[in-house]
């Protein structure tokens, strides 16, 4: 079946089987920034923004995205670069596998709650696991990014 989705501002039509998940459809279409980390919607690595809200694409049926706006990190290159600068300064990036999804989640936080407290940041990102960093350097970098005004 055909599903019509706005991906990063471009209208796309995908021919998908009914049970296909958004993650697989997008990766198949070449949006390689979205990656799989688990099978149980537990790690946050497959996060995309659906009409601006973070959603785990590994368990989101592609057909449910009909007529909606999907944003991958390729759609927010300037914001990702800004966050990357703070990550670089804090040494908060290691393997990088979770970083595109983290950039989307943090960008959504900035849209929703730009003055988030440490506790609000932790809660907002509790589903975005990272096994490399120990989290603290990321918290510092994320705060700097949130404080940055356009």
């Amino acid at each position: 079946m055909i599903v019509n989705v706005d991906v990063n501002g471009r209208l796309r039509s995908f021919d998908v089987p009914p049970g296909a998940f958004l993650l697989d459809v997008l990766r198949e279409a070449g949006y390689l920034s979205i990656r799989r980390g688990c099978d149980t919607t537990s790690c946050g690595i497959c996060t995309v923004l659906l009409d601006g809200k973070p959603v785990p694409s590994c368990s989101y049926l592609a057909i449910r995205a009909e007529g909606r706006k999907v944003t991958t990190v390729e759609g927010i290159p300037e914001e990702a670069a800004k966050l990357a600068r703070h990550f670089g300064e804090e040494g908060a990036d290691q393997c990088g596998y979770c970083n595109p999804s983290l950039a989307l989640a943090v960008y959504a936080l900035k849209q929703t709650r730009p003055k988030a407290t440490d506790e609000e940041i932790r809660l907002w990102l509790v589903g975005n696991l990272c096994r490399c960093s120990g989290y603290q350097s990321q918290l510092v970098a994320i705060k700097r990014y949130l404080e940055e005004r356009p």
């Binding site: 990190v73 670069a81 600068r85 990088g96 595109p100």
Partner: peptide, 21 residues
């Protein structure tokens, strides 16, 4: 010196980089 990593920015921006890519 605490220099930024060589690949951090491109990885954050989602460039194809990992095995399955």
């Amino acid at each position: 010196k605490p220099l930024a990593s060589l690949d951090g920015k491109a990885l954050m921006m989602g460039r194809p980089a990992y095995t399955d890519d």
